[in-house]
């Protein structure tokens, strides 16, 4: 293998090593440690100056205590389950909201498509945090949505949406909608229009043609979009913190509390490691789906 090829192949692996494996190993290491009143607040720490004995002591100090702890309190598995449920429901809602948009974009005149694409991407130019904050102004009881609904006479008393699960779903759907739209659009856009005519020619109505042809052909896009929404939603912390109520149980919040309130970096790390393991499953499935469609 010539050296240039070697560099080309090594580069992504080096990237992966530096930006994923090393941080992961650090987190894994912390998850096997114990809390301590010190800087940093866990022990043991790696001390090469003590030589072999130090290294032996270091590894001797690691154990799975924190992972066992995660099984002892039902808070953790309930949070994981609740997160998965919220992520799954939010992903489905995002699909419902995103598919028609992607479909309309792919059916728009070609000269309009770059503009529409731009409009989808445009919100990314502002901070996601600010956009989620903006929803407070819309959803709060004296917010724009309630004002509009009261004014139009749809409701008599303001709806309390903010600080509920509904607000969390709205936030997730809103934030991740482009991640759903873009892959679906990509799969619909390259679809040959004559396929629909062929389906009609062979006896389909417009609607059956959609379900028999358009929908199956956009499946890779749907799958990609669902993963792109589900994976970040699962560990989502910002949206439930800003828009959700205290009853919204998500693992991101549990992790935050372990880290900040309990100052228990090891348990927080253990929560993160388990979350990663849970995510590895859909990520691997996603990867296989991508390969199959490559």
């Amino acid at each position: 293998m010539n050296p240039r090829r070697l560099v080309l192949i090594a580069a992504p692996y080096a990237w992966l090593l530096a930006l994923f494996m090393v941080p992961f190993l650090i987190v894994l290491k912390i998850s096997l440690s114990d809390t301590a009143v010190a800087i940093p607040p866990y022990a043991p720490t790696f001390d090469l100056s003590a030589g072999w004995a130090g290294i032996r002591e270091f590894f001797g100090g690691l154990d799975f205590e924190n992972f066992i702890w995660l099984t002892e309190d039902d808070l953790y598995w309930k949070s994981y389950l609740s997160s998965m449920k919220i992520a799954a429901v939010a992903t489905f809602l995002t699909l419902l909201a995103g598919y028609p948009v992607a479909y309309a974009m792919s059916r728009a005149k070609p000269e309009w498509r770059p503009t529409l694409m731009m409009l989808i991407i445009l919100p990314f130019w502002s901070s996601a945090l600010i956009r989620v904050y903006a929803w407070i102004g819309i959803l709060q009881s004296e917010g724009y949505l309630n004002q509009l609904l009261l004014w139009s006479g749809v409701i008599d008393t303001p709806l309390s949406i903010l600080n509920t699960q509904v607000a969390v779903y709205i936030g997730i759907v809103y934030t991740y909608l482009p991640f759903m739209i873009l892959p679906i659009y990509a799969s619909l856009e390259k679809m040959d229009e004559s396929l629909l005519e062929a389906a009609e020619d062979l006896g389909c109505t417009r609607i059956t043609a959609f379900w028999r042809v358009t929908f199956p052909l956009s499946k890779p896009g749907i799958i990609a979009g669902c993963f792109l929404v589900f994976i970040p939603s699962l560990g989502e912390f910002v949206i439930p913190s800003i828009l959700g109520g205290s009853q919204t149980l998500m693992i991101g919040k549990v992790l935050w509390e372990e880290f900040f309130s309990n100052r228990d970096w090891p348990v927080a790390s253990a929560v993160a490691v388990v979350l990663l393991l849970i995510l590895v499953i859909p990520i691997v499935l996603f990867q296989r789906n991508e390969e199959r469609n490559a």
Binding site: D192, E197, L202, P216
Partner: peptide
């Protein structure tokens, strides 16, 4: 008569085979 009800079928230039 809509296309799906005509006793007429078409072979498309692009063939329009359903790839899935």
């Amino acid at each position: 008569v809509p296309p799906n009800k005509r006793p007429v079928n078409m072979m498309f230039q692009s063939y329009a085979l359903f790839p899935h």
